[in-house]
Simulated scan of single mutants.
Amino acid sequence: MADSAPPRPPRPCPVCRKPVERESPHRPFCSARCRQIDLGRWLAGDYAIPGEPADPEEEPG
Rank of each mutant, 00 (worst) to 15 (best):
G45W: 00
L39V: 12
I49D: 05
F29V: 06
E58Y: 04
P12E: 09
S24F: 07
V15A: 10
R33T: 09
P25M: 05
R11F: 12
G51V: 00
L39Q: 13
A2V: 12
P9T: 09
I37N: 00
P60C: 11
C13D: 03
S24E: 08
L39F: 13
R41T: 12
A2R: 12
R8N: 15
C30R: 01
E52W: 06
P7G: 06
A54G: 11
P56C: 08
G40T: 05
V15E: 15
G61L: 14
E58I: 05
P19W: 09
P19C: 10
P28L: 09
D3S: 07
P60W: 03
Y47K: 04
P28D: 09
G45H: 00
G45P: 01
A2N: 07
F29T: 02
C16N: 05
R8S: 12
P10D: 03
P53D: 00
G61I: 12
E58T: 06
V15G: 00
R17A: 15
A32Y: 02
S4I: 14
R17W: 10
G61V: 14
W42Q: 13
P19A: 06
Q36Y: 10
P6M: 11
C34V: 08
H26Y: 14
P10G: 03
W42D: 06
R41N: 09
L39W: 13
S4M: 12
V20T: 07
C16T: 04
E57Q: 08
G45Y: 01
A2Q: 11
G40P: 02
P50H: 04
M1H: 03
A5N: 13
A44H: 04
